[in-house]
Amino acid sequence: MEDKNANFVSGAPGEEPEIDLGPKDNSRRTFLKQSALITAVALAPAPAVKAAEMHFDERVAEAFEKMPLKMEVNGVAKSLMVEPRSTLLDILREQLDLTGTKKGCDYGQCGACTVHVDGHRVNACLTLGIMVNGKKVTTIEGLAKGEVLHPMQEAFLKHDGFQCGYCTPGQIMSAVACIREGHANTEMEIREYMSGNICRCGAYPNIVNAIQEVKGGGFVV
């Protein structure tokens, strides 16, 4: 196989080089699976074959499909093995149990999954987790300082900036970014720069009021 190319680095610089199964990785896996089957047949009575095959297949799949991901989430270093196809959103929710970041549409069309990566707001649903390697992620769970809420969280409470609460983490993360970016100077500007966050309960005016208060209050966001 041709691509033990030293110029390619998989994962963060300094990580292990990639293991390339080649373009026909499926046939490779099938081959490994067949090998496993043969071995299993040789070693085990018939009823166990399926289980043994699946178990081995799992290990093969894991070894070839998962990659190391190191990132800092809410100030805590995380070291994971992830499939390249796993989005940051699914990794946060399903692997790290940080369910504050929400899945609303999964296609970048609602903003419920908004998190900060290296300080910038992005849609976690369209971000491959592996591409966040070496970066700092802040989710809604990382906004408060211990028991002390972030001023934006306080303002959402005060202005009733939500009803069902499902889009709320995304709205708050976006609202904080909106001020940090310098896009909260007028009501119209806030509305435009918050438009990537859909709220079906319709709390928009209250959210805009919350942002205006935080912006006008001179809080450090």
């Binding site: 110029n7 390619f8 680095v9 610089p13 990639e18 390339d20 199964l21 990785d25 390249p84 491959l128």
Partner: peptide, 19 residues
């Protein structure tokens, strides 16, 4: 989503070779 391999290009030449 189908599983795929992921590599990070360290240079323009790497990227061209890969694609």
């Amino acid at each position: 989503m189908k599983q795929f391999q992921y590599v990070r290009a360290a240079s323009q030449q790497d990227a061209l070779a890969a694609i």
